[in-house]
């Protein structure tokens, strides 16, 4: 040990050896940091899929990702039965190329506000998000568009920081869920992610569903057909939404 220090002192002027020590230090530091991060990820994955103990009393801010077309139709069916006083305020996000979905959500919120005598801006907000990839877009240009979509998703998530995320594909929800998962790891916000696989998926999960399932990003993943539950046992079978 002493000999080692002597050697160090002797070699003090030698930049090469010095940087060697520094890099050893950095290296072990990096290992500690990486281990901590991994532990944190495992912690998030472990606790993510477990229900909250105790009783919830306060309403939760909720991000609702509308996936366009049939996906939006399924989501609206879910929203129709969910207790709106518990899931409030609600933030609706849809792809920038999809103008129907937000209109439909707006109709729902308008009729809700009329029923309860409230104002829509107090309970709901509507936002658009850039899509990472449009149907038929080439994979090379989609690298660039994915980056823009990620940055935009990050901006939205910093603003919203939802406690609950409801999504059901397609890909629009992936950047938002990934950022929510990152926020969980960093301790910025603990969002519970609920993903409902589309009724169209009978035998195989969609790519979005598979990602959220395999990477354990979704706290709960619901499927509408028993065959899927057989194949992906951590998914919960809930029957048809349509």
């Amino acid at each position: 040990m002493i000999g080692y220090f002597k050697l160090l002192m002797m070699d003090k002027g030698n930049g090469c050896s010095f940087s060697g020590v520094v890099s050893t230090g950095t290296f072990s530091c990096a290992i500690v940091v990486v281990t901590l991060i991994l532990l944190r990820i495992l912690y998030v994955m472990y606790w993510g899929s477990r229900p909250f103990g105790g009783k919830a009393t306060k309403p939760v801010s909720t991000l609702i990702v509308l996936g366009s077309g049939g996906h939006t139709a399924e989501m609206l069916n879910l929203l129709a039965v969910i207790q709106k006083d518990r899931f409030t305020p609600r933030f609706y996000v849809a792809a920038a190329t999809d103008n129907m979905s937000l209109q439909k959500a707006q109709l729902l919120e308008n009729s809700l506000a009329e029923e309860n005598g409230t104002r829509v801006p107090d309970t709901a907000q509507f936002m658009q998000i850039y899509r990472s990839r449009e149907v038929g877009q080439s994979y090379i240009t989609s690298i660039w568009t994915t980056l823009i979509a990620m940055a935009h998703a990050l901006w939205l998530m910093i603003k919203i920081r939802p406690q609950v995320i409801l999504c059901n594909g397609p890909g629009t929800c992936i950047p938002l869920c990934a950022i929510a998962f990152l926020f969980k790891i960093l301790g910025i916000r603990w969002s519970s992610i609920f993903y409902v696989e589309s009724i169209a998926r009978v035998r195989r999960l969609s790519l979005s569903g598979l990602l959220l399932y395999k990477l354990r990003m979704a706290d709960q993943l619901f499927v509408q057909w028993p065959q899927l539950h057989g194949k992906y046992p951590r998914a919960t079978y809930v029957g048809r939404l349509m």
Partner: peptide, 21 residues
Amino acid sequence: IPGDATPVAKLINRFLGFPDD
């Protein structure tokens, strides 16, 4: 027979610790 979303809503509520109605 059209589907029903109440089982999903129930599970989400239970997960978050909201009481069943």
